[in-house]
Amino acid sequence: MAQVTLTVNGKQRTAEVEPRMLLVHFLREQLMLTGTHVGCDTSQCGACTVLVDGRSAKACTLFAVQADGSEVTTIEGLADGDALHPLQDGFWEEHGLQCGYCTPGMIMSAVNLLNDNPAPSEAEIRHGLDGNFCRCTGYQHIVNAVQHAAGTASKE
């Protein structure tokens, strides 16, 4: 077992983990932060995306021990109290989700996308979300949601 200390959603956490424990399982099963989902086992789908030190990362691709000393933000830590993050608001307003399973990871990737590029074009949004799969929406409302958050929604 190895000891890890990391800050998750602003709270410092110290735990004993198996060295092989994936960060996503550590978040879900030890910290009970089940908003981060697992959609595949090959790091393709992006359902497990969180922010590690402010950058999006697939939490199934990292061991918990690799995140030692890091600051992790999960979907549960994105809203500011009762005030939704603009991307959460965008997904709600634009019907950017159906079953909701990919949504936390999709939103966390979009956070990273808008951090890098606050006013992306539609093509930049579509390419920027390349690492996140959604099987429900056909992505159009997701694109709208990101545009809504970025304030770049075209008048339709």
């Binding site: 879900r28 009970m32 932060l33 089940t34 908003g35 981060t36 989902h37 697992v38 999960t74 979907i75 549960e76 994105l78 809203a79 939704l84 959460q88 997904f91 709600w92 307003e93 019907h95 989700l97 909701g100 399973y101 949504t103 936390p104 939103i107």
Partner: peptide
């Protein structure tokens, strides 16, 4: 009408089977 399901899902507060302990 925007969906009533969404507030829980966009905050990671939905409960899927694998979230049950």
């Amino acid at each position: 009408v925007k969906r009533r399901e969404d507030p829980r899902l966009i905050q990671g507060l939905g409960t899927y089977v694998d979230d049950i302990k």
